[in-house]
Design a protein around this nucleic acid. Structure first.
Lengths: 208, 208
DNA sequence: GGATCATTGTTGAATAAATAACACTAAAGA
DNA sequence: TCTTTAGTGTTATTTATTCAACAATGATCC
């Protein structure tokens, strides 16, 4: 069974992770089969798009019955399966950081948060949502020690760039940035921003 | 001056709000002019794209000097200016909710968070980051009273759908959802999800 | 004051994505 | 067993987005 992973467009990939999430809910609700138009409604797109995406990954459903929730979920799981499980560190254990830990707590398959860091020494040493918190001065050492390759930044805007550089310097290749500043990092490091303010603006725009 | 707002593609709009944010930083750093390729670097796209976007909104720069940071910022401001300023309510004043309040605290122009709600009566009555917190049972009354039209959901997944429906029922037309469940709402309500887990997965994918 | 140079404004081609259309298939009922 | 029906798999069309190329421009320097 050869995998044409590289040929699957990124947009489709992104939708696949959404489909998988939706399929998990459906499975939890005891739903065995789902139609393309149902999935489309949940994912806020069209039935044609869903069918096309599933065609791309080579999944086959059955007329009348639709797609098997379990089998489709398993298929996407295999596709999205990370070669190496991702090892994540969170920097900044303030309100936002702790909220993220709690949120992501329900382990994602193949992704584990192994450590948290904070400049406040009071916080380090504690265990938050099952994750050990270290002082930020140990960042480099611990990242190497634990084989971390992904970072989540939940620090104040003023510190984001510095922390990001330190992470990148010790081999972190992906960063999820919650600080509302654009990060400037060497090529090869994937950065994704979650800018709540921008999201709000976007909605305000679409609404009026 | 007629505005061709409707003709500006959504993708461009989304980039515009990012440009504006970047311009604010540049202005704060005392930068008076910026070149298309500089802006492109910050926005993670190409110079051609930046120029095209600015062409679409009809902004003119100067060769050699580039674009005036202040004037371009003002131009985008006008374009993005909301007819009516948006009035926002946050539901769920847990870790995540409080973090959001603190984050968005630095007021966005034309967007104000006017109220927070929580089911824990201990929390209501308090003022968090300048925002008054009410018990969630008063949600409908207060939303109407304050003329809220946008909602931020930072409640547990199990309550998200119910709260969203209640908000929509009293006239909220846009919802920013942090709960990792797909919301099913009547057409006309704009929903945007921020699913941290999905974001992480996406980065893990891109990295390997 | 004119040549030069770096950058803009614009157009057109190439690429990618979304949509629609339709033949095909498998279950259900007579 | 044949027909109906609802939904899939696929191809074609349209639409949107990105990229690349180049003429036009206006500061700057000699």
């Amino acid at each position: 069974m050869k995998r044409a992973k590289a040929e699957i467009p990124l947009k489709t990939m992104e939708r696949l992770v959404m489909y998988r999430r939706l399929l998990q809910y459906l499975a939890a609700e005891g739903c065995a089969f789902v139609f393309s138009h149902e999935l489309a409604k949940l994912a806020n797109n069209t039935a044609a798009q869903v069918r096309r995406d599933l065609m791309i990954i080579g999944h086959h459903g059955s007329p009348i019955r639709g797609y098997g929730v379990r089998s489709l979920g398993a298929h996407i799981d295999r596709l999205l399966a990370h070669h190496e499980p991702s090892r994540v560190a969170l920097v900044g254990a303030g309100n936002l950081g702790r909220a993220i830990l709690a949120h992501v707590g329900f382990q994602l398959p193949g992704i584990t948060i192994l450590a948290a860091f904070d400049s406040d020494e009071e916080r380090s040493g504690r265990v938050i949502a099952g994750v050990r918190c270290y002082p930020v001065r140990e960042l480099e050492r611990r990242v190497v020690e634990l084989g971390i390759n992904l970072g989540i930044l939940a620090v104040p805007a003023s510190e984001a760039q510095e922390v990001a550089e330190r992470l990148a310097a010790v081999g972190v290749t992906g960063i999820l940035n919650f600080a509302p500043v654009p990060l400037r990092l060497p090529q090869g490091v994937v950065v994704d921003e979650i800018d709540i303010g921008m999201k709000l603006e976007r909605i305000a725009l679409c609404c009026q």
